[in-house]
Design a protein around this nucleic acid. Structure first.
Lengths: 191, 191
DNA sequence: ACCTGAACACCGTTCAAGT
DNA sequence: ACCTGAACACCGTTCAAGT
């Protein structure tokens, strides 16, 4: 049962199916296993068949990146406490990133994601910042600082070979640093 | 003039020469050009000759990473103002990282460097933190937060294809966020 | 000990051809 | 429009052999 379809039958690939398979492959076998050829094998298709649904491997990885960001639990932009909302959004992002450890360096290599999900999260953050009194250039800066900090910290929370730090401890560490940053962000916006 | 030595003559490679060539190749042609084969060509040697001086490509990249960290201008551990010293150390690290944009994602993928230079910088930071009243577990956490923030910010400061943010603006942004973090770090250590 | 030639087991991507 | 076979131009690494 090498192939899941009878010979002569169309593979019936879809961009969606390709992306889903890419995420499975990533979850099951890690980043090094996510190759165009490996993905094609998993889909029972020739390697170059993928290029009918995806421009390049880079484009595919970008799509996966934004896909994963869809899992972040974003608070409503008009949540009662905007600062608490920001805290919750960053914490959720941190958790989602931890659940996809292989992707974290890729996010950083790409300087974040650029898809619709990433954009939506940015908009929510800006709305919350505005309600906390941080707007204009200060808001842009705050956004950048918070994103950098969150992805950066997730990058350091991936399992390592040499005696790693317990995950629970790092999560607490992340939380404290986040509070310092939020205090700075809001303080600067208010002054 | 493909090769720089007459036939039959020893190449006379050295671990140091290999590392230097790797840094040159990186600076001149970027990360994607840093391949074992490309490096061998530049040294006028067969690709597998490199394995007499370097365990693997990973080991070579790790060595380059720590090498670059040697350029950071570390203040003396007993500088008059320890907080200013920390600020200067992080700012210098930030600048060195910006000068080697291709390496930044690699640092993050490796979760920092692990060589002697990285170790020395960590020791200096811990000494400065101690003199600012931050010790023990709090110091470990502060160290991590500062490193994450600095590398993470450098990661976002690499030139991008789509309308990037001016470097000067980002440097100011980095500086403000760093001040917030240092305020939090010292405040927490003192309480 | 250090280097070479040749090979192995991979990559991403393109091109011409089939349906 | 979508897929295949074959090829191109690469990788990192190993192995046996020479000096």
């Amino acid at each position: 049962m090498e192939r899941h379809r009878s010979p002569g039958q169309r593979a019936g690939l879809t961009r969606g199916r390709v992306l889903a398979a890419a995420r499975e492959l990533l979850a099951e076998e890690g980043l090094t296993a996510l190759t165009m050829r490996g993905l094609a094998t998993r889909l029972g298709v020739a390697p170059n068949a993928l290029y009918s649904h995806v421009d390049s491997k880079t484009a595919l990885v970008d799509a996966v990146l934004d896909d994963v960001l869809g899992e972040v639990a974003a608070p409503s932009p008009d949540a009662p406490d905007p600062v608490a909302g920001l805290h919750a959004l960053m914490a959720s992002t941190y958790e989602v990133l931890l659940a996809h450890p292989d992707l974290v360096p890729v996010y950083l290599a790409r300087q974040g994601a650029r898809g619709p999900n990433a954009h939506a999260l940015g908009d929510t953050m800006l709305a919350l910042l505005a309600r906390a009194g941080v707007e204009g250039q200060a808001a842009i800066e705050a956004l950048r600082v918070l994103i950098v900090y969150t992805i950066g910290f997730a990058a350091f929370d991936r399992p390592r070979a040499d005696a790693a730090v317990p995950a629970a401890e790092l999560a607490g560490n992340f939380d404290r640093g986040l509070r310092w940053l939020l205090a700075g962000v809001i303080g600067a916006g208010g002054r």
